[in-house]
């Protein structure tokens, strides 16, 4: 569901221009192919050719089109092609949490569920206490600034008894605070601190919600998309390293 939004939100501004250019470059006879482009699959990625059949119909008609090979013939990806995830665990979770879990899916053989943020802590607790998911592998986040709720927080949990690994995903707005898992899994302590450090997502009820890798006084959260790769906290660098820039 989240992945449906991603391309729509991201690609159109980027795709609009590069898409127009190869059409122009392909000279006037490409006008017919250019005409069916906007009506074709609009939210596709940059420089995508029109859907297979209209494009193929145009190609033999055009006598000489040198820039043609530049356009990759591959079908551009549109959305994450997930399959439904079924099984006794899904039934048990649906029965227990109902609408709080919005999606059960499998992608590339890996199972995940999408849940409402406030209920994630209770899902993790239920999975640990009643379904043997006793190992919290990782907590991380993905930043999608275009979305209404910009963060997607991901918990990866594993069960030694079942030898199964699943992911829990939940969207979080900039001001929303997920509940900590540190009371259940002590490993969550540092993992949540790292998420806070890198994204600025605070976890409610965490015993020590401070930065872990960056200095405590550092301003900004580097893994947010608006944070440039060469950006740094200039004031901190000047004050603590006594140099103008660390670049």
């Amino acid at each position: 569901m989240d992945e449906d939004k991603k391309p729509e939100a991201q690609t159109p501004p980027a795709a609009a221009q590069p898409k127009a250019e190869p059409v122009k470059a392909a000279s006037a006879e490409a006008a017919s192919s250019g005409a069916d482009k906007p009506s074709g699959t609009a939210p596709a990625a940059a420089a995508k050719p029109p859907a297979a059949s209209p494009g193929a119909a145009v190609k033999p008609a055009a006598p000489a089109r040198p820039p043609r090979p530049k356009v990759p013939p591959k079908k551009a990806p549109a959305v994450m092609e997930v399959e439904p995830w079924q099984g006794s665990l899904v039934d048990a979770l649906t029965e227990r949490f109902g609408d709080a879990i919005k999606e059960f899916s499998t992608y590339r053989g890996q199972d995940f569920l999408v849940a409402e943020l406030p209920s994630v802590a209770s899902i993790i607790e239920y999975l640990k206490l009643e379904q043997d998911f006793d190992y919290l592998v990782d907590i991380t986040a993905v930043d999608n600034p275009e979305k209404e709720k910009r963060f997607e927080v991901i918990w990866i949990i594993y069960s030694f008894a079942r030898n199964t690994r699943i992911r829990i995903k939940a969207s979080a707005g900039a001001d929303e605070k997920p509940n900590t898992a540190a009371t259940l899994h002590r490993t969550a302590d540092w993992l949540e601190r790292e998420v806070f450090d890198m994204f600025g997502i605070e976890f409610e009820g965490h015993p020590n919600m401070t930065r872990i890798l960056l200095p405590d006084e550092w301003q900004g959260h580097p893994l947010r998309k608006e944070y440039s790769i060469i950006q740094q906290d200039q004031d901190w660098v000047r004050e603590n390293l006594q140099i103008e820039s660390a670049q």
Binding site: E3, K6, P7, A78, V79, M80, E81, Y107, R108, R167
Partner: peptide, 8 residues
């Protein structure tokens, strides 16, 4: 270019 998706 991998398709849109995710993997662990």
């Amino acid at each position: 270019k991998p398709p849109i998706g995710e993997a662990y």
